[in-house]
Write a protein that binds this DNA or RNA. Structure first.
Lengths: 186, 186
DNA sequence: CTTGTTGGAGAACGATCGTTCTCCGCTGAT
DNA sequence: ATCAGCGGAGAACGATCGTTCTCCAACAAG
């Protein structure tokens, strides 16, 4: 048998792809098993329930988002450039062929009522991003109010790009962010 | 028996409330029947399938959104004020106790894969709003690029308010819109 | 080789889904 | 009073869900 850690990774990756493409409720555990190549018995030994698997998938998305943001920020020097780099990161993401909006927003809309863990996780993820932006705004010498405005732009770009099916919202939001930064930092 | 039109309205209203609160897939037709007080037989005489009922619910949401935006715009004089009035409309909406994000975004995230009609309807609704904003921007004498930026702000405010569970994103987005308008219209 | 243990494939279970069907009581014409 | 036809309540149907169970091949220890 394959290693527990490897099996976990395969299951979470397969579930992530399926959940993201089709929605969580539309994907049965049988489809996860087929895609992951791991037996149902093994899946239920690794995750006590589908809800636990959903939580693991969201945790994986969280780590990926944080890593992507951090990698993009590394290539920028100033706090102001790091803020704008967020929108460059979004631009690259929107151009991926299977881009389908923010997985957290999708999961929240679908599951918030019956799954409090999902609501809490999504809320925490968004709050964490807002803290990240707020720290950069503080470093750049901008006012407190600017951070929330930039986060709203990033959020709106994600849903706009997902529904329109085109990536241009990233550049539009970036241009708006430049105006807001220019006005706040004179 | 009650009037066909009345029965239709009751079914669509009940389905809208349930779908919006719990998600579409989590609501069975039995729950719709109980909430609407209309027999299953009758529901299926009025709507050939659940998908048709979903389409009717989204159409109702579209009409409500357009009416709400139009009513708020009526109380504003200039094009610039009509643009900002959109965010006042959002503010009032976010404060409603059962506010739960944009029903179109929620439906898209949940159903886009298996229901092309939903995707098309949601895309058309968002495109229609962008045209509305673009018309106002043109009337105000602003550049083409401004409309998309304002629409992204409105979009982001909706998901941010939904996930945070607080209405302040409306005021934050409005403040950002004022900056963008100020910079564009000098 | 025999035995005991493990994990994989997938059948089975009870619940619930969307949809259809059966039954029955009501109404209105004769 | 009788009968035809309509609509309501909800049982029934086949499919599918999340989850558990059965069965058997493969392998390690003696």
């Amino acid at each position: 048998m394959i290693d527990d850690t490897l099996a976990r990774t395969q299951v979470v990756e397969a579930a992530d792809q399926l959940f993201y493409a089709r929605g969580v409720q539309a994907v049965g555990m049988d489809a996860v098993r087929t895609a992951a190549g791991v037996s149902l018995k093994r899946i239920y030994a690794l995750f006590p329930s589908k809800d636990a698997l959903i939580a693991a998938v969201l945790e994986r998305r969280r780590a990926q988002w944080n890593a992507g943001i951090a990698a993009t920020a590394e290539r920028a020097d100033t706090a102001r450039e790091k803020i704008l780099a967020v929108f460059d990161f979004l631009d690259g993401w929107f151009r991926e062929p299977d881009f389908n909006g923010c997985a957290f927003i999708n999961a929240y809309g679908e599951l918030h009522d019956g799954n409090p863990d999902v609501s809490r996780t999504v809320r925490e993820q968004k709050a964490s991003f807002q803290r990240y932006v707020a720290d950069l705004v503080r470093d750049a010498g901008g006012p407190e109010t600017l951070a929330a405005q930039l986060a709203i732009l990033a959020e709106g770009a994600q849903t706009t790009a997902a529904i329109a099916g085109t990536p241009e919202a990233a550049a539009q939001a970036r241009a708006a962010a430049e105006v807001l930064l220019g006005a706040a930092l004179d």
